[in-house]
Design a protein around this nucleic acid. Structure first.
Lengths: 203, 203
DNA sequence: ATTGGACAGTTATAGAGGAAGTGTCAATAC
DNA sequence: GTATTGACACTTCCTCTATAACTGTCCAAT
């Protein structure tokens, strides 16, 4: 019975977040109304408040869920090419860039002029998201490609995350082309020794 | 005589931009008043309008001058280490990060919530600034280190610019430490062949 | 447990009036 | 000739007002 209750609860939670997602994507976070949100799902305002203590908590949960979905997609992109580092990075980065370009939530945040109200969440939490993504990718690479030098791995993962973010903000080409370039760069860093011969540069 | 007039003109222009710089750094671009600007330099409003056709032109010129100063500093950083690629990149990136952290104009732009009014200039022109910086760095590296593979060079320069921008927005360490990491990454990319042996990763 | 209503405190909204700023013009002074 | 001054239409910004709406909480009712 306890299981049942719990299931209902999380189901409600998901439905609330779904409705919130749609509303935020449509009109922005600051125009999201708790009353509308409750009404859209068919519960009272108080039930909503018993699930999320505040509007801020809704934004937090929304952000968190979206981040997890994104990370999941990245993991799947990596998993699809366990035998090819370049292809794995390309798939993961391509997925992220495509998602960022298509996802109305991300678009709403990026196109917002700052008055949006969800941007504060992002600027505040983006550091955490950055860290989470980096840590995940680092752990993953460490497990699947143990042969990569730790220092090179850390630099490569950091570069992958930062370059991907950069391409989201400043895209100079299609997601596919950008992903190819990022993957190329990342592979070169990952497979470097740090003791490259500088001789040819002096000539 | 014509030379004299011209000198006076450019001198006035510089003084106007200096005053504009101070005002924008202090109160933001949208709070900059053409009347105050003219008054601060000691000329009439019409003289100001004969030098800059609009307030937008003032912002444009301000942005342009600042960009040129930044690029000049980067070039000097590179020039100071013509014999050491890593040191050159580290100096250039370190300079940029330090400047971005200290420069009140950059800070005013970055901390602005979007309503600032100078942010539009930046978002509009940032692509151009990106391209300019990238082109400059690429040409420089091509000249000073002709031994670097063209493909690797392009990737390395692109990574250098994007990683630097990323560290301006998301700084996880001191400018010096960040510069060291970026330089390390860039050198690894620059000195890569693109035909790295992937064998050790499969093991 | 969920609901509906009611609550204080805050915040958005809309309108009206005045203030200030932009960009341009012509007359004037040096 | 060039810089200054004052004036101009037009637009945007402020301020103040009143009103509406929203948040978050409490409680009685179911």
């Amino acid at each position: 019975m306890a299981r049942f209750r719990e299931t209902v609860r999380t189901l409600l939670r998901e439905r609330l977040l779904d409705a919130a997602y749609e509303a935020v994507a449509e009109r922005g976070f600051d125009k999201l109304r708790m009353a509308h949100l409750a009404g859209a799902v068919g519960v009272s305002r108080q039930t909503l408040y018993s699930e999320f203590p505040s509007k801020e908590a809704v934004g937090e949960a929304l952000f968190q869920r979206e981040l997890e979905r994104c990370l999941l997609g990245i993991q799947q992109g990596l998993d699809a090419h366990r035998d090819d580092l370049r292809a794995a990075v390309e798939a993961a980065v391509g997925f992220t860039l495509t998602l960022a370009g298509r996802n109305p939530l991300v678009r709403a945040v990026l196109t917002s002029t700052g008055e949006d109200g969800l941007l504060p969440y992002l600027t505040t939490r983006s550091a955490a998201a950055f860290e989470t993504a980096t840590a995940m990718a680092d752990a993953y690479v460490a497990e699947v490609w143990p042969g990569v030098d730790p220092v090179a791995r850390e630099l490569a993962v950091d570069a992958a995350v930062r370059l991907t973010a950069s391409h989201i903000v400043q895209s100079t080409a299609s997601p596919e082309e950008s992903a190819r370039r990022v993957a190329d760069t990342v592979v070169r860093v990952a497979l470097s020794t740090g003791r490259e011969n500088l001789a040819p540069t002096i000539r």
